[in-house]
Simulated assay, not measured.
Amino acid sequence: MLLIDSPSHNAYFNIASEEYLLNQFPTEDIFLLYVNSPSIIVGKFQNTLAEINLDYVQEKDIKVVRRMSGGGAVYHDLGNLNFSFHTLLGQNDFGDFSFFTKPVLDMLNNLGVPAELKGRNDLLVEGKKFSGNAKLARQGKMIQHGTILLNSEMEVLGDALKVNPLKFVDKAIKSNRARVTNLIHYLPKDTSTEHLKNLLTEEIIKNNPDAVRYEFSEDDLRGIQQLMTDKYETWEWNYGFSPQYNFKKAIKVPAGFIEIHLEVVHGIIEKAKIFGDFFASKPIELLEEHLIGQKHETTALKTVLESLDLTEFFGKVTVEEILEGFK
Rank of each mutant, 00 (worst) to 15 (best):
D230V: 00
L301Y: 06
S175C: 11
V42N: 02
L149F: 08
L196E: 01
Y232E: 06
L196R: 03
T147S: 14
A250H: 13
F257R: 15
A211I: 01
E289D: 11
V125A: 12
V104A: 08
L108V: 04
K128T: 04
F100M: 02
L286Y: 06
N182Y: 02
N151F: 09
K302M: 13
N109F: 02
E116A: 15
I224W: 04
E194G: 07
E297S: 12
L149P: 10
E312D: 15
F314C: 05
G72M: 10
F100V: 00
T298H: 07
L78V: 06
R120S: 00
E194C: 07
S307G: 15
V125H: 09
Y12S: 05
V317W: 09
Q58T: 12
N133G: 04
V265K: 12
S192V: 05
G119P: 08
I184K: 12
N246P: 00
E18N: 03
K248H: 14
S152L: 11
L150E: 03
A211E: 00
Q244E: 15
N208T: 07
G315C: 06
L2Y: 09
K273H: 14
V212N: 09
L49M: 04
T191W: 05
L305D: 11
L149C: 01
V64S: 05
G132V: 08
K249I: 02
N53W: 10
I4P: 00
S6G: 06
T318L: 05
F83Y: 11
Y75H: 04
V104W: 02
F100R: 01
K282V: 00
E259R: 11
K197S: 06
S84V: 01
K44Y: 13
S37E: 14
L161P: 08
A272S: 14
I205Q: 01
Y232M: 09
I184Y: 12
N208R: 11
V74F: 01
I15F: 06
L196I: 01
G276C: 10
G256A: 05
A255T: 06
K129P: 11
S175G: 12
E116P: 04
F13A: 01
I62G: 10
E312Q: 13
D220Y: 08
L286I: 13
I52M: 04
P26C: 07
F247D: 05
H9Q: 10
I292F: 11
G71P: 02
L136F: 13
D5T: 04
I62T: 07
L2I: 10
Q225C: 10
M142H: 04
I30E: 00
I292T: 09
D219E: 15
L88T: 05
H266Y: 15
V125Q: 13
R222H: 14
E236C: 02
T299H: 14
V317Y: 10
Q244P: 13
L262S: 14
A211M: 03
E155G: 11
K302I: 08
G325W: 12
T311N: 13
G325T: 07
T27L: 11
V64F: 01
K252I: 08
N110T: 05
H261I: 03
P103G: 03
T87V: 03
V65K: 08
K171A: 08
H195P: 03
K174F: 01
Y214H: 05
K316A: 13
I269E: 09
D96F: 06
P7Y: 14
F275Y: 15
D106K: 05
M228N: 03
